[in-house]
């Protein structure tokens, strides 16, 4: 038991905090646990959930990406403009995913082949993409979308189900691939020790490049799924998405030193950070304290993880 606890210290810590939050809600505001509310929370947090898949892989490979919010915004505007040209959903959907893939690939190429640190590349990319977008759109929204744009044109209920189903499949695919495919394990190997991975015959550059490209594609998917829930699209979408995603991933136990992390952990992180906002409103807490509480939870989760780990190490040393 203590072994299981130690190897999943962060997931345990996060679930513990989430449990406390949910019990408090159950006692103080049972209205929180209605199917409708849980579905809404899930849908609102979908973008973060999807981008957290890419971010988990990036952080496992010992890199970082702060440009995904900007990529998200670019793909949102592209989604709107392409759908206005009258293209059918499968076509413009593919084009948007391709756009995301190529934005991510550009990051990946500069990082892997240009040998620039990822924080520098993606910081620059964030500024460039956001400012170009403001410059070109001047803040105007994309309006006048085709009538069948929202919910794929199949209505709200089925549309929500379709989006949730799609994301579940994508998430499960990446979950399975990351733990079972050779390519998935290679990401861990590169993150743990790139030189050792290279000596073992893996191509670290190509793996890093592929990880960033996939993360770009996932940002595009996130933006697509989010856009299809609305009838108008804002050009500054995804503000702060990168910080939310990174916070959820690291709270979920992915080590920024590379080589360690799971999608389940990130899912726990998204669940915890994504619930707080709504939970506070249900508990009647003044919204101006929300950021402070979020900060405390991030710090508490990472410290708790360390304490659990040390505690179980001591126990096994005593035994």
């Amino acid at each position: 038991m203590s072994n299981l606890l130690a190897s999943h210290a962060r997931e345990t810590a996060v679930l513990l905090v989430l449990g406390v939050l949910l019990i408090t809600l159950g006692l103080a505001a049972p209205g929180f646990f209605t199917a409708g509310n849980l579905r809404d929370i899930l849908l609102i947090n979908l973008p973060v959930l999807v981008t957290s898949i890419g971010m988990t892989m990036i952080i496992i490979s010992r890199q970082i990406d702060v440009s995904i919010g900007a990529q998200f915004a670019c793909c949102t505007v592209a989604t709107g403009l392409l759908s206005k040209t009258g293209l059918p959903l499968p076509v413009f959907g593919t084009l948007v995913i391709l756009l995301g893939l190529s934005l991510g690939a550009l990051n990946g190429a500069l990082i892997a082949f240009g040998r620039i640190p990822s924080i520098v590349v993606t910081l620059a990319m964030m500024i460039i993409l956001r400012d170009t977008l403001t410059w070109l759109t001047e803040g105007a929204w994309v309006q006048g979308l085709p009538a069948d744009f929202q919910w794929f044109g199949i209505g709200q209920g089925p549309g929500q189900a379709a989006i949730l189903g799609l994301i579940t499949i994508v998430w499960l695919a990446f979950y399975w691939g990351l733990s079972n495919l050779a390519a998935g394990r290679a990401i861990y190997a590169v993150g743990a020790d790139a030189e050792a991975a290279r000596l073992a015959g893996l191509p670290p550059q190509r793996i890093t490049f592929a990880v960033f490209a996939m993360a770009g594609g996932l940002s595009a998917l996130a933006s697509l799924c989010n856009s299809l829930r609305f009838a108008e699209l804002q050009s500054n979408a995804g503000t702060g998405l990168e910080m939310k995603t990174i916070a959820a991933v690291v709270v979920g136990g992915t080590a920024v030193s590379g080589g360690r992390g799971t999608l389940v952990g990130s899912l726990c992180g998204v669940a915890l950070l994504g619930t707080i906002g709504t939970a506070l409103t249900f508990l009647g807490v003044d919204p101006s304290w929300e950021k402070a509480i979020q900060g405390v939870i991030i710090l508490a989760a990472v410290s708790a993880d360390l304490l659990i780990e040390r505690g179980s190490q001591q126990r096994s040393a005593n035994a």
Binding site: M243, I246, A247, V250, W289, E290, K291, A292, I293, Q294, G295, V296, I298, L299, V302
Partner: peptide, 9 residues
């Protein structure tokens, strides 16, 4: 990242 949220919050 945590204190970034905490101090502003």
């Amino acid at each position: 990242l945590g204190s970034f949220s905490l101090y502003r919050g």
